[in-house]
């Protein structure tokens, strides 16, 4: 699954604000298929990591309580360079995206 993450990093007054949108179903495993009545298997992002020039700035652990196509925004002190965002879900799928700080 390529290009499931959109990431933007902007710098202002020595602080970088990162905003990202990921494309993911985020199934809790509790919902049922309306037609068959069978439970839809859980499929959600478990871990999101964000690095600034190779330095870890944020690790997020998620459960099924995060909305479908998750949005994430956070801030950290720094300037320049690039920000890399990566996720791993409960099926072991993963993706990452990078944006240079503007």
């Amino acid at each position: 699954m390529a290009n499931t993450i959109k990431v933007r990093a902007k710098e202002k007054d020595g602080e970088i604000t990162v905003k990202c949108l990921m494309t993911h179903p985020m199934e809790t495993g509790l919902r049922k298929d309306k037609k068959t009545g069978e439970a839809i298997p859980a499929h959600f992002i478990q871990e999101v990591t964000c690095d600034h020039d190779g330095k870890r700035v944020l690790t997020a652990y998620w459960g099924g309580g995060v909305s479908k196509n998750p949005y994430l925004s956070f801030k950290f002190k720094g300037s320049g360079g690039s920000v890399k965002v990566a996720w791993v879900d409960n099926k072991g799928e993963s993706d990452s995206a990078e944006d240079s700080v503007s």
Binding site: E15, T28, K55, R56, V57, L58, T59, A60, Y61, W62, G63, G64, G65, V66, S67, P70, Y71, L72, S73, F74, K75, F76, K77, G78
Partner: peptide, 20 residues
């Protein structure tokens, strides 16, 4: 529990997301 954010060095006390 929907999400747990571990803030690294230099990270500000700010997170924004969407939950169910």
């Amino acid at each position: 529990l929907a999400a747990d954010f571990m803030l690294g060095e230099g990270a500000g006390g700010f997170v924004s997301t969407r939950i169910k």
